[in-house]
Design a protein around this nucleic acid. Sequence first.
RNA 1: CGGGGUAUAGCUCAGCCUGGUAGAGCACCGGCUUUGGGAGCCGGGGGUCGAAAGUUCGAAUCUUUCUGCCCCGACCA
Length: 448
Amino acid sequence: MRLSQYFMPIMRDMPKEAEIISHQLMLRAGLVRQSSSGIYSWLPAGHRVLRKISEIVREEQDRAGAIEMLMPTIQSADLWIESGRYDDYGKEMLRITDRHGRDMLYGPTNEELITQIFRDGVSSYRDLPRNLYHIQWKFRDEVRPRFGVMRGREFLMKDAYSFDLSVEDARRAYYRMFTAYLRTFARMGLRSIPMAADTGPIGGKLSHEFIILADTGESEVFCHADLLEMDTPDIETDFDGDLEQVFNAWTAKYAATEEMHDAARFEKEVPETKRISARGIEVGHIFNFGQKYSEAMNCRVQGPDGKLITLEMGSYGIGVSRLLGAIIEASHDENGIIWPLSVAPFHVGLVNLKSGDSVTDTACEALYADLTSSGIEVLYDDSDNRAGAKFAAMDLIGLPYQVVVGPRGLQDGNVEIRTRAGGEQQTMDIAAAKTYLNEKIRDGLTVQ
RNA sequence: CGGGGUAUAGCUCAGCCUGGUAGAGCACCGGCUUUGGGAGCCGGGGGUCGAAAGUUCGAAUCUUUCUGCCCCGACCA
């Protein structure tokens, strides 16, 4: 993509409505624009990141055996009356009346709808287990939206729903999602820590929040430092196998959010030097809620003995749009965003230091064409801004690699390659630069 | 929903106290000079001053009401 033909309005000044760093940087880097409180438009670069995050989520859900579908944003109130949550949900649910006077709502979540769809589509134990998910916009009319996309009213969420015949099967379904979540966040360069969680209004028994440590996190969290060093389940993980060990290993050490925190237990179980008391961002939340909805909504199948079995269910959410904020909170410096390669809007920023100079233009065009044709996503700054302005903009938008092409280096046939994360700079000839970038990016994108 | 702020150009802000018909920096357009970490000079475009009502000869400025947005708290992916 040529910057001269793109739409990425960068702001030099700090927008006053933004308080926390991720929100400031998202606005300044031209990723989002606020439409109204807690509601955002996703500009082209922000949309690219959103898509990449969604794709990682999708790949890991699929790997764990979940099946993608898509449910609507607008739902009928009837279903919610059936489950008993129409009144419980309160003002956070945006209620709408259609032209016929029917009560509708903008879905804050989808347990009711999926339960109805599933129960109507399945009648035998042979159809179980199943886990269905979608990635769809949700609306929760938060009392106080804040921190940009971290707590928006409209937000993109992946929600999966598992259906099983027995409590044991349901636990296995839970372990699969648990494991998939560890992998999902790790692929975005995040260290997530599963923490025992309160089950909240969704109800149920077993529940974990996946927390990213960050100073601007909304909740206070406590955990064992070893959790920051644990190995993430790798690509060889067998999701058809027994994942209980993964679950046990990750839940053996103390980790709890404020609501579940037990100070006495924390001090007893965690040596003083290993105690982490910090703030965290919740990027995922998984629940096993047994028969709460299947009972209320009559979701049953016939077993081998002809008797009806009420299904065991779980739901598994990931805040996809929130993850942009979380990643930036976890990865930035005073100059701007530092995108992990896997979710960066582009892999490489190509900086032409002297647009209009035929030598640099020619070199840049050739490099742009070569890199692009080898599958690398390049944002080519072909504008005629000054060098300093281009560097500042590149650092702000935070692409993982910068290739700086200028007349000085080209005299010796060289370009400069900079790594946004570490700040390393190396000079090499153009052929070497191509090889270097191809290798680095291919390796960096290989799923471990 | 309680408390506190704030609203003037795309962004950051000044002007308001003491009413006289709107400014700066950045960004943008044109020109010249410049060109390796947010250049300089010259010229230019752009604002129903959040909305409504009131006071007044005259309101960005004073009064009242409303609204948006932000922060703290309670609540939540």
